[in-house]
Simulated assay, not measured.
Amino acid sequence: MLKQFNKAYENDALKAAVYGASPIGIVVMLYEGAIKAIMTASIAIEAQRFDEKARMISKAMDIVEGLRIALDVEAGSEAAVNLNELYLYMKNRLGQASLKNDQVILAEVRGLLETILPAWQQVDRSQPAASAVAGA
């Protein structure tokens, strides 16, 4: 699972944090990374730095795809199936935003991520013992 996410991160300190995190902690970091990439892409559109916009949207799409791939849809969980569909929708919208240089679409996807992120943060905070065991 971690190999799928490395592509999204270029910074060695961040890689170290990812390898030291719980699985839920990794999800939180990925959401935060996607949100940051989308914000940076929006700023790049405003500044007409389209190469930077493309790179940041691509990074956000890679993160969302990593989150999607990590889902256990085959287990039949309704939450996993719903998240899979949502991640596919987000990737589609990010592609549209890139083609159209559309900050409104970027804001929409960022809003979706920001809506779900607190739930993951809460799960991460409520499972410190489980995280420590999982990391051992």
Rank of each mutant, 00 (worst) to 15 (best):
Y87S: 09
A41P: 08
A16G: 07
M1Y: 10
K3D: 14
I26T: 05
A37S: 13
P128F: 00
A41W: 00
G135I: 08
M56K: 15
A47D: 13
A130T: 06
V28I: 09
M39T: 02
L83F: 15
A80M: 01
I24Q: 02
A75I: 10
G95R: 12
A44F: 07
N101V: 00
A60M: 01
A79Y: 01
I35T: 10
R49Q: 15
A119W: 09
A130C: 03
A47T: 10
A70H: 08
S77K: 10
A79V: 05
L14C: 02
F50G: 12
A134Q: 05
I63F: 05
K36N: 04
I45Q: 06
A60P: 07
Q122N: 08
A119N: 09
Y87N: 09
E85L: 05
E32R: 10
G66A: 13
D62F: 02
Q48I: 05
V28N: 08
V123D: 04
P118D: 10
K91R: 15
R93Q: 13
G135K: 13
A47Y: 08
N82C: 03
P118M: 05
I45D: 09
P23C: 02
V81R: 15
K91Q: 14
L71G: 11
N82F: 02
A8L: 03
K7F: 04
L99H: 12
